[in-house]
Simulated scan of single mutants.
Amino acid sequence: MLFVVVILLNLVTQGLSRCLFNRIGIGTVSTGREIQGKREWKVTVTNNCECPQAPIYLNCRGFQTVEKVEPPILEKRGDQCLLINGRPLGPFASISFSYAMESPFVLTASTSKCLLKL
């Protein structure tokens, strides 16, 4: 019985280590549009993990867009931005949003958790 528990804990630990916030991919491309004289950028956030992740927070210190991003998608909370109201982003799923600034803003994942089901 102890052997089974050790194996199970090992599998859970391996699953969690593969599904940290460093498995959140973020890509930014120019849309070619201008909003209030600023270039528009499209961001795609992808969960590159086998399990859903939530809540996903992005580092967004200094993020100031002239184009409104809907709060259900991205909500600025001080220097952090909460993605999709803290709801899970499924395995290998993506979500996109656009913003307008002079140059692309480097968004990085700061925290997320794997919602591992046993």
Rank of each mutant, 00 (worst) to 15 (best):
L2P: 08
V5H: 12
V6H: 05
V6M: 13
I7Y: 02
L8H: 13
L9E: 05
L9W: 06
N10L: 14
L11Q: 12
L11H: 07
V12I: 14
Q14A: 13
L16C: 05
L16A: 10
S17M: 07
C19I: 06
C19M: 04
L20W: 02
F21D: 04
N22D: 13
N22C: 04
G25F: 08
G25I: 06
I26E: 07
I26A: 09
I26T: 07
G27E: 15
T28G: 03
T28N: 09
V29T: 15
V29K: 15
S30P: 01
T31W: 10
T31K: 11
G32V: 06
R33E: 12
R33Q: 12
I35F: 15
I35G: 00
K38A: 13
R39H: 14
R39P: 01
V43L: 09
V43F: 05
V43A: 09
V43M: 06
V43Q: 00
V43C: 08
T44E: 15
T44R: 15
V45M: 06
N47F: 00
N47E: 06
N48A: 08
N48K: 12
N48P: 02
C49N: 12
E50I: 10
E50Y: 13
C51P: 02
Q53C: 05
Q53R: 11
P55N: 09
I56T: 08
Y57M: 13
N59S: 14
C60I: 06
R61Q: 09
F63Y: 09
F63P: 05
Q64K: 11
E67A: 14
K68S: 09
K68P: 03
V69H: 10
V69Y: 10
E70H: 11
E70C: 02
P71H: 11
P72G: 03
E75Y: 09
E75R: 14
K76E: 11
G78H: 00
G78F: 02
Q80N: 08
Q80F: 01
Q80G: 00
C81I: 00
C81Y: 02
L82P: 08
L83A: 00
I84V: 09
I84L: 02
I84Y: 03
I84G: 01
R87C: 02
P88M: 04
P88S: 04
P88Q: 00
G90R: 03
G90H: 02
P91T: 13
P91Q: 13
F92Y: 13
S94C: 04
S94K: 14
I95Q: 13
F97W: 08
S98K: 14
A100K: 11
M101V: 01
E102L: 02
E102P: 00
E102R: 03
S103L: 07
F105A: 04
V106A: 15
T108C: 01
A109G: 15
S110F: 05
S110G: 09
S110Y: 06
S112T: 13
K113G: 14
